[in-house]
Structure formats: C-alpha cells, structure tokens
Computed example of a mutant assay.
Amino acid sequence: MEGFITDWLNLALRWFHVIAAIAWIGESFYFVALDNSLKPPTDANQRRRGVFGELWHVHGGGFYNMQKYTVAPPEMPDDLHWSKWPSYTTWLSGFSLFTVLYLYSPETYLIDKNVLDMGPVVAIFSALGFLMAGWIVYDSLCRVLGNKDKLLGVCVGFYVLIAAYLACHIFAGRAAYLIMGAMLATIMSANVFFVIIPGQRKMVDAMLKGDTPNPIYGKRGKQRSVHNTYFTLPVVFAMLSNHYAMTYTHPYNWAVLAIIMFAGALIRQFFVMRHRGQVLWYLPVAGVALMAGALAWTLPHPVVPQAEAANAPKLKLADIQPILTQRCAACHSAHPTLMGSAPAGVLMDTPDEISQNAQRIYQQAVSLKAMPLGNVTHMTDDERQKIAAWFEGGAVK
C-alpha cells in the first residue's frame, strides 16, 4: 500500500511539476526572444517617454505592441504583472517530487556503494548541501565578476563542469544527473527570488516615492535572466535523463553529462542569436555533433560471458529465472514489494514475460548494469554473466 501511495504522489507531483515548468520556460523563452527582437521606436513621443525598444506581434487574430523602457515608465501602472510564480511553483513542485522519490528512499536512489559507500543520512544531507552550495558558489561568482560578462560565463561553465564531476563521484549515476539538474534549477529559481524580483521591487518603490530608479537593478536582473535561459536546456535533459541509462551508467558519466549540457547551451545560443537577427548555423551543428559524439562514446561493448568463453552448453530460461526472481521480481512483478507498480510495465513473473523482455533485461542488467536500481538486491557479476550467456545464446526457453 505504501508503494502504491508513493506512485500516486509521484504521478500527481510530476504532472504538476511539468505543467509549472512549461509555464516558466515558455515565459522565460518569450521574454528573452522579446528582449532580443526589440527595435527602436519610430514615434518621437515614445522615445521621449523613455521607450527603449518595441516589437509588434500578430497572434490569435490580434495585434500586440510590446514596449520596453530604458529604466521605467514615467508613471506606474495600476496593474503590474510580476513574472515569479511559475518559477517558484516549478521549484517547489520539483523539490517535493525529489523528496518523495529520492530523499525518501536514499538507499535505492541516491547511493551506489561502487561510487561512494555512505549511509542514508549522509546521502540525504549531501544532496541537500549540493543544492545549497550550487547557489552559494554561483551567486558569489556573479557578485565578484558581475561587471565582466564573458569571464563570468567562462567561470560559471567551469564551475558546472566541476559540480558534474563531484556529483557523479558522490551519488549513484542516475541521482547525480538529477541532482545536477536540480542544482541548476535551484540557481535559476534563486535568481528570480533573490535578485530579479527584489531588484524590480526596489525600482517600483523608487518610482512610487517619485525618485528615479537605479538602473543597476535592471542590469543585474537581465544578467541573471540570460544565465537562466542558457541553463534551461541542460536542466530539461537532466530531468529526463533517468529514462536513459546509457548516459549515467557510463564510466565517464560526468563527461557525458557535461557534453550534453554544453550541446544544449549551444543550441539555445542559436535561438538567442537568431532573435537578434544573426543566424549562426554552426551553433546547432556543433550541438548536434556533440550529441553524436556522446552517442558514439556511450555505445555498449559486446559482453563475452564466462560460460561461453568456457564453451559451456547454452543456458536456458530455467537457468536464469531464479536469478530474476530473487534480484528483479521485487520491482518487476504483478505485486512488487519495493515499488507501487512495475517500472515501465515490465513483468518477470512468468517465462513468457521474461522472454518478451529478454532484450531489455540484457541491456539494463548486463550491458548498462543499471538494474537492479542501486543494486539494492545485490545482483552479482556472475549472475549478470549468466544472463548474458542466456541472451547471447538465443534466449532459449
């Protein structure tokens, strides 16, 4: 019953999180595109009012005129929209989902004793500390190098690389990727909460008092907003990565993660520059080339089973079924004990079900060694070799 309830919490939180993320990313992408597409106003009255740039839209049968002021409008409007709740909702729902899945079951999701042997309490606080440290280091870099955009960008990129290396040497590969995504998402939401919105509030307060707002708040907010847009595609990949074990189970999973994140940043840069009127095709080409390189690098090597090497007779399903029953059925059965329901609907209760999933069993348990998850059921290398021998021998029933 507990696993069943957890699965429903997972469903509800994941659905809510995705909806909130769509709203936040959509809003973020729109404003970055808008900011990079502005043209100086042709109306002299608009220029005198402090309009820096404008953009005309036609959408849904209507015409829209978006304007941006150099600092702020002459008068404060009665109804002012604040772009903050999609960010906060995305982070809160994501952290809730992370708590239900990962922090609630650290032995299963956070810990891989082959990476680092640590207890569940240490794993939980390490994960939370990783998120906090991510923001503290990033924010410190911005405060020290805030006036040097290019140097700051290089330093932030280098820091993300170091963080990826550390995460993949502390946590299980699957968790490391997710924690990296959560760290970047925390930075993004913290940028909104600690820098962008407070700066905007100070500008509004100054206007209400009849003072001229300090333009530094707008500059800082834009800088953090630009950083957020480059983090977006890497974060989306990290959140989806748990479905693709060939990435996080690689011996150099931290480098695979860095390559894919860099590819995402390059592709995002293409769209940013395109909105400025510069079509730089080498950016997406380089991004796709990096993805292709990651694909080639992560191709599994053929496994030579010990039994085959010794010219042993081919194994039959009956020879490996006890292994699957002992090591896999706790999750992959009609009535699992470690999960609310069988992941991906893969069942191993009967010979027919095992045969139908032979390819997936071989890939996950032998080629990638991604299953059992966190190896919580302690599948041995000899058992993996037996599964390999059975599959490569034709998966004989």
Rank of each mutant, 00 (worst) to 15 (best):
H243V: 06
I196S: 12
G199K: 02
F231D: 13
D211E: 14
V226S: 13
C155V: 11
K202N: 09
G157Y: 03
T298L: 03
F29Q: 08
V18M: 09
M118S: 05
N147C: 07
F130N: 00
L13D: 05
K148I: 02
N375I: 03
Q278E: 13
S105Y: 15
N36T: 05
A292S: 12
A127N: 04
Y109G: 00
P343M: 07
A286F: 05
A21P: 04
G221N: 10
G129D: 01
G60W: 09
T89R: 09
N114D: 14
Q269W: 11
T325W: 00
A44P: 07
R327F: 00
P198F: 06
W254A: 10
N114C: 01
L233V: 15
I187C: 15
I354P: 00
S126I: 00
V376D: 02
N214D: 13
V121H: 00
R174G: 09
L145E: 04
W254M: 01
P336F: 04
A176R: 05
L283Y: 13
R276I: 02
R268S: 12
M66N: 10
M188F: 11
P313N: 03
A182I: 02
F98H: 01
C331L: 02
R268C: 08
L34P: 01
N45E: 14
F391V: 02
T298Q: 03
A312L: 09
G264C: 06
Y252W: 09
P251K: 07
L38P: 01
K314L: 12
L283F: 10
